[in-house]
Design a protein around this nucleic acid. Structure first.
Length: 264
DNA sequence: ATGGTGGGTAGCCCA
């Protein structure tokens, strides 16, 4: 069995205590973090080592973005894709060398895309779509069992948002984003593990804005975080959960962790 | 219709 977690932590240095709590309470074998907001030089390796997570692949950036894959079983970094070609740290790929050997684990942080869902008015929105298009071309070439996890910054299904109609023009749930993400899905035949085990139309959110007095009030969440697997790997997924309670931890991230277990 | 909050870093960007 192998247990893999993914979490947009929104500053790993500020929230290292929450990360430690997750590792102690859930004991995943591998943790994929997004938005670490730091470079490797100032990454809190000691905290991870002390808990037995001695294998690291850190693709960091000062102040913004950044991803890290941390493991207690051996991993080997194999790629750092820059799907925007602008130097932002938004991906790291590893292969798993211990139990679960043969699996490739891709950790990605898709650009949020700004506020206006229009390429002309808002270049960031175009960059988000272009990032996904390049990721799609990459996905066509995958020839090994792969799990891609992270903050995709898109909630594709109606039941992935608190109000479908109200969010149709809100970046993260616009039809053009959903279609672009669908093309990525079709390029490899990805299986959406979260939705295999928490089937639509059941409510499923992984993010709640900071801009609310009480995040529970109205439950205005969105499913921005995902774990998608190659078909043969998806067949071996035995459990999946969303740690909603982490949104209530002291000084929380606006995202909560996702965890999937595989019988490997 | 609007602005609301949070993190990082150094006078704003990004989410």
């Amino acid at each position: 069995m192998i247990k893999i977690a993914s979490w947009n932590i929104n500053s790993v240095r500020l929230r290292i205590g929450l990360v430690e709590r997750l590792l102690m309470e859930e004991a995943p074998d591998i943790l994929c973090l997004q938005e670490i907001k730091t470079v490797a030089e100032t990454f809190p390796f000691e905290a991870f080592n002390a808990l037995g997570y001695t294998h690291h692949a850190v693709h960091g950036q000062k102040g913004y973005h950044g991803v890290a894959t941390i493991s207690r079983i051996p991993i080997r970094e194999i790629s750092r894709h820059d799907w925007q070609d602008n130097g932002e740290a938004r991906h790291v790929g590893v292969e798993v060398l211990g139990p679960g050997q043969g699996m490739v684990l891709e950790n990605v942080y898709v650009p949020a895309g700004g506020d206006i869902p229009d390429r002309e008015e808002n270049p960031k929105f175009g960059q988000k779509l272009d990032f996904l298009a390049r990721m799609t071309r990459w996905a066509e070439t995958i020839d090994r069992p792969t799990l891609i996890v992270g903050d995709f910054n898109i909630a594709p299904l109606e039941s992935d948002v608190w109000n479908h109609k109200q969010l149709l023009k809100v970046v993260s749930h616009t039809p053009i984003e959903v279609e672009t993400l669908q093309r990525f899905k079709d390029a490899h035949g990805w299986v959406d593990i979260g939705r295999e085990l928490i089937r639509a139309p059941e409510r499923y959110y992984s993010w709640w804005s900071y801009r609310a007095k009480d995040w529970k009030d109205g439950d205005r969440g969105r499913r921005l975080d995902h774990m998608w697997a190659s078909p043969e790997l998806a067949n071996q997924a035995t459990g999946h959960k969303v740690l909603e309670q982490a949104r209530d931890w002291e000084q929380p991230s606006d995202h909560v962790p996702l965890i999937t277990e595989f019988a490997l």
